[in-house]
């Protein structure tokens, strides 16, 4: 009887017997889960809950998709606490701009240990979808950043948010889907990013900070707000670059520097005679010039457009503020339009 545990342990070491193999499977599974829980634990130490007291929202001008009588989910914003991320130990907290947008009465941050601090909204950048908050605290936990050069498509990652009660965490696992999105500012992940975890950290298996989960928008979540498995994470190194300006309280609209027409293409349109538009984004050049959903852009400054990729390429040849001429098919007519190119607010 006394020998039994020793025998089992030996068998486990030798991995010979089938009982040992079952044990080893069990150990592998526990190790599998353990790897995720350890990464989540590290991320949880820097994940804060943010309570936003909002007088009025400014997100009601969300794009509408034709045929969607329900209206876009982005027209309304959840009232529950949102998630933020401790970026520097002396009280600097970053979150998604989306989380603190609107006319605010006040903002409070609940730290992982439950301590509640009033927070001051410092700078933000709408295009990059980042905002900086300051609380009076020091010695807060932070995470070492993952080296952007070490990131690979296929890296296992976890997005961590705060539960609606502000205490527990939420975790969504996934992989890094692609590098180099948003002109290199972001990476793409298939971890499900939604209202709850946007603004929180994304970490790799070593518990290093990859970046800030943000840009939960019509591309990443459809117009009904259901995450598509296409999410974006602003790299920690890019947050560091932007931090001095945010600390000064700079409030920028753009920052991407790419020209923009303000339209969303019907990416599956294969007519081959142009780029058909699915959505005209409010406030963009295209809307002001009168383009409509369903229009097919066939020429831009003389460049022939056969699909939406062509249109993208043609727009990128020009500068922000430059006026371009479009030939557009609408029903049976071909119409001429002229409009200045705006700046891509999503970058």
């Amino acid at each position: 009887m006394r020998l039994a545990p020793a025998f089992l342990a030996l068998a486990l070491l030798l991995r010979g017997a089938s009982a040992a193999s079952a044990q080893s499977d069990e150990a592998t599974l526990r190790a599998f889960e353990g790897a995720y829980s350890r990464a989540i634990e590290k991320a949880a130490a820097v994940t804060v809950s943010i309570t936003v007291d909002r007088k009025a929202d400014t997100a009601s001008r969300a794009p509408r998709v034709p045929g969607n009588f329900l209206g876009s989910a982005f027209a309304t914003r959840p009232e529950a606490p949102v998630t933020g991320l401790i970026y520097e130990a002396d009280g600097w907290i970053v979150t998604s701009y989306f989380n603190i947008q609107g006319d605010l009465r006040g903002v409070e941050v609940t730290l992982p240990d439950g301590a509640i601090h009033p927070a001051k909204v410092m700078g933000w950048n709408v295009g990059a979808d980042i905002a900086l908050l300051k609380i009076e605290a020091t010695g807060l936990a932070t995470l070492p950043a993952a080296d952007p050069g070490d990131l690979r498509t296929g890296d296992v990652v976890v997005a961590v948010g705060r539960g609606p009660d502000g205490r527990g965490v939420t975790a969504n696992q996934g992989i890094l889907s692609a590098p180099g999105r948003h002109s290199g500012r972001s990476v793409q992940v298939d971890a499900r990013l939604n209202y709850g975890n946007t603004g929180g950290p994304l970490v790799n298996l070593d518990g290093r900070l990859v970046g800030l989960c943000n840009k939960v928008n019509i591309v990443s979540a459809g117009d009904r707000g259901q995450n598509s498995g296409v999410g974006f994470v602003m790299l920690s190194s890019k947050i560091a670059e932007m931090l001095p300006s945010l600390k000064k309280g700079d409030r920028n609209q753009g920052g991407g520097g790419r020209p923009f027409l303000g339209v969303m293409g019907d990416v599956e349109y294969t007519g081959g005679d142009g780029a058909r538009l699915r959505t005209i984004l409010p406030g963009g050049s295209a809307e002001k010039a009168g383009l409509q959903s369903g229009d097919v852009i066939q020429q831009l400054n003389g460049d022939k457009i056969t699909n939406f990729d062509d249109l993208r390429g043609a727009i990128l040849k020009h500068k922000i503020g430059e006026t371009v001429k479009l030939k557009v098919k609408r029903a049976d007519e071909v119409l001429d339009f002229e409009m200045p190119l705006g700046e891509n607010p999503s970058e």
């Binding site: 992989i175 692609a178 296409v230 990416v267 993208r312 390429g313």
Partner: peptide
């Protein structure tokens, strides 16, 4: 290339086109 992300006209800064991988 979900939503044409990374497709023609949307290269990464290194000029290459990276499709999206999901597991």
């Amino acid at each position: 290339a979900p939503f044409s992300i990374g497709a023609q006209g949307d290269p990464a800064p290194d000029g290459r086109h990276y499709p999206s991988v999901s597991l």
